[in-house]
Amino acid sequence: MLANTVAQNQSRQTLEHYDEIWLFGYGSLIYKVDFPYLEKCPAYILGWQRRFWQGSHDHRGTPENPGRVATLIAQAGSRCDGMAYRVTAEEFIHLDHREKNGYLRHEVPVFLINESGQQVKKLGIIYIADEENSAYLGEDSEEAIAAHIANCRGPSGENSEYLIMLDEALAELGVVDPHISQIRWHLSNLI
């Protein structure tokens, strides 16, 4: 069964109480920006780690052979870097559909990094796929995750492309994520 969360996300938050809405991207939302935005800037959140523990039945894999994509896991003392976008509430019609495979919207503090390097704290929206959703694949070694990724393809392309593009987008932000780097190193030995 696919974990379609569109209706659940639309009933979770109306977004009407926001003066401005900041969406935090930590996976494909960093490099595949297929929605209009009013403003963007590098950002980070605290207490979360990026992990390739979520299954992708609809983008980077199939129901028979789900790919692996990024989600977040809670980890005290951690920092997850990404990109924040100021968007209108209307954009969540598209975003909820795009992130429908097990991801739920959550409100978190997002620390925006402006052009002068100053940090500004805002309330933001992130999509997280936790272990309760049916598409969750869970923890595995970076080597096993790389082997899994090497053998998956979906309507949005090769699963390996997702990993490589995310790693390159993080590098452009000056971010090294050891989990991502180790998976990519193992993947490079397979393809």
Rank of each mutant, 00 (worst) to 15 (best):
A3L: 06
N4I: 03
T5K: 02
Q10D: 08
R12C: 02
R12S: 15
E16L: 14
E20H: 10
W22H: 02
F24D: 06
G27M: 06
G27D: 12
I30R: 00
Y31P: 13
Y37M: 02
L38Y: 08
L38S: 09
E39A: 09
C41L: 12
A43H: 13
A43D: 12
W48C: 08
W48Q: 11
W48P: 05
R50G: 13
W53A: 05
Q54L: 07
G55V: 01
H59A: 12
H59P: 15
T62V: 04
P63S: 15
E64F: 03
A70I: 14
A70Y: 07
L72A: 10
L72E: 03
G77F: 11
C80S: 15
A84V: 05
Y85L: 06
Y85N: 07
R86N: 10
T88W: 12
T88C: 15
A89M: 05
E90A: 15
E91F: 02
E91Y: 01
R98H: 08
R98V: 03
N101I: 10
G102L: 09
Y103R: 01
R105D: 03
H106C: 08
E107W: 07
V110F: 00
F111Y: 15
E115M: 05
S116T: 15
Q118R: 13
Q118N: 12
Q119V: 07
I128E: 09
I128M: 08
A129T: 01
D130R: 12
E131K: 05
N133Y: 02
N133E: 09
N133A: 10
A135N: 14
A135I: 04
A135M: 07
Y136W: 12
L137W: 03
L137P: 12
L137F: 02
D140A: 12
D140Q: 05
E142R: 11
E143M: 05
A144N: 13
I145Q: 13
A150F: 14
A150E: 10
A150T: 00
N151M: 06
N151K: 09
C152N: 09
R153N: 10
G154T: 15
P155N: 11
S156Y: 08
S156T: 00
G157W: 11
E158Y: 03
N159W: 11
S160H: 14
S160Q: 08
Y162T: 06
I164Y: 00
L166V: 01
L166H: 13
D167Y: 04
D167W: 07
L170I: 12
A171H: 06
E172D: 11
V175R: 12
V176C: 06
P178D: 09
H179I: 03
H179P: 00
I180V: 15
I183S: 12
I183A: 07
R184S: 04
R184E: 09
H186L: 08
H186D: 09
H186K: 00
L187C: 05
S188R: 13
S188V: 06
S188A: 03
N189W: 08
N189I: 01
I191T: 15
